[in-house]
Each structure stands twice: as structure tokens, then as C-alpha cells.
């Protein structure tokens, strides 16, 4: 039997369509639809895209929480990147599940931090819903590569000092060209008479 489960948050709606069994558990996903209220376009896709979206949002939001920037996009189908301190750009190559065809133009939505939180929360609710895709669980243990760490205390300052010291040691081993000596003037430069 076909069914639809919808997770609504103040800034977005995530709907998953699929087949449910007699116990009302949805095991088979036929498609999903993600709609941000500030953008008229709808992101659609198959299970593959949903899983990539889930993984990308998890990795990105964890990096964001740690004040770091994620450097390895998981897939070119779903890309989430920081635009500035407060906005994040989500790009999805949307697939219409009925036509099974990738749309020519990827959908690009700019999200603020609260909208990113709502996207993450809608996916978390889907993951914790035991009646919808029970095999889809919140997995935060994926290895993640980060860069640009910001620390709360003086750790960053000490790290910076370490880099400077290493650079100084490195520089001391680099050959420095000796400047040519200029001959000293033979006579002292005349000064104004008192």
C-alpha cells in the first residue's frame, strides 16, 4: 500500500513516499521531496539521493558545530558548502523518481543557519522514526576530514605559535643570499655649520 510520511518544521518540509506493510512500517522508499518555504522549487529524489543528503548534512553540520570546514564532498550529487559565516549553499542534482531522470540544472538553495538546522532536524526525525525506513539510522561515526579549527581557549594561539616556530626553524636552514658590501664613504658627510 502506498503511503506518505511528512516531517514539517518551521522552515522546511520533508516528505517520503513509499510502500507500507500490514504493520504500517514503510520499508520501501519510492521517492522523497524536500521543500524549503523560502524557495518555490522542490528537491526530489530516490533513496540514493536521500542517503547522500543525509550523510552530507550530518558531516557538514558536525563540522559546522566544531567551527571547522569540511573539505571532502561526499558526492557531486549533493554538495553542501559554506557561503559565509551565516549562509550555506545546498546543491542537489534532483532526480524525479517517476521519470528516473536527472534534471539538467541542479537545484541550488541558499540556507541560513536556522534553515540548515531545520533540514538536519527533519532528517533526524526521519532517522528516529521506527515506522519509516527503520534501516535508516543516524550514523555519526563516518570518518570526516576537517580543516580550519577554531578553539575556544588559547589552544589556537599556541598552535599558531607552534607554526611560527616551525617556520622559523625551517627558515634558519634555508640558504640566505649574502648582500654585497657597499664601500663606506671615505669622507664624513658634511653637516650644516652651527
Amino acid at each position: 500500500m502506498r503511503a506518505q510520511r511528512v516531517y514539517t518544521l518551521p522552515n522546511c518540509t520533508l516528505g517520503v513516499m513509499g510502500l507500507v506493510n500490514d504493520q504500517d512500517v514503510m520499508h520501501i522508499l519510492t521517492g522523497f521531496e524536500l521543500h524549503f518555504f523560502h524557495d518555490p522549487r522542490r528537491i526530489k529524489g530516490t533513496r540514493e539521493v536521500l542517503e547522500l543528503l543525509l550523510k552530507t548534512v550530518n558531516v557538514y553540520s558536525l563540522a559546522f558545530q566544531r567551527g571547522q570546514e569540511q573539505i571532502t564532498p561526499i558526492s557531486d550529487m549533493v554538495v553542501l558548502e559554506a557561503e559565509n559565516a551565516d549562509t550555506h549553499k545546498l546543491t542537489v542534482k534532483s532526480i524525479d523518481p517517476d521519470a528516473q531522470q536527472t534534471q539538467a540544472e541542479p537545484i541550488q538553495v541558499v540556507l541560513n543557519t536556522v534553515q540548515l538546522f531545520d533540514l538536519m532536524e527533519s532528517l533526524d526525525r526521519l532517522c528516529t522514526d521506527e515506522l519509516t525506513l527503520p534501516d535508516l539510522t543516524l550514523n555519526l561515526s563516518a570518518p570526516v576530514q576537517f580543516r580550519r579549527e577554531q578553539s575556544v581557549g588559547w589552544g589556537s594561539a599556541l598552535a599558531g605559535l607552534g607554526v611560527v616556530l616551525v617556520a622559523a626553524v625551517g627558515l634558519s636552514f634555508m640558504p640566505v643570499p649574502v648582500p654585497e658590501r657597499t664601500p663606506a664613504p671615505e669622507r664624513p658627510v658634511p653637516t650644516l655649520p652651527r
Partner: peptide
């Protein structure tokens, strides 16, 4: 600015899986 960062951190741990997310973000797994 640190106070602002902490508010964002608090927002991200106010969701359904906030506890797991905060723990993972503190310890990086």
C-alpha cells in the same frame, strides 16, 4: 563572538538527536 558561537552550538543540540550530536561534536567520535 564566542557567546554567539555558543548559541549556535546550543541550537544544534536542541534537536531530536541533540545529545548524540553534541557528544560527537565534543569528542569527534
Amino acid at each position: 563572538s564566542l557567546g554567539e558561537d555558543l548559541i549556535v552550538q546550543l541550537l544544534f543540540c536542541s534537536g531530536t538527536a541533540g545529545e548524540q550530536r553534541l557528544w560527537y561534536s565534543l569528542t569527534a567520535g
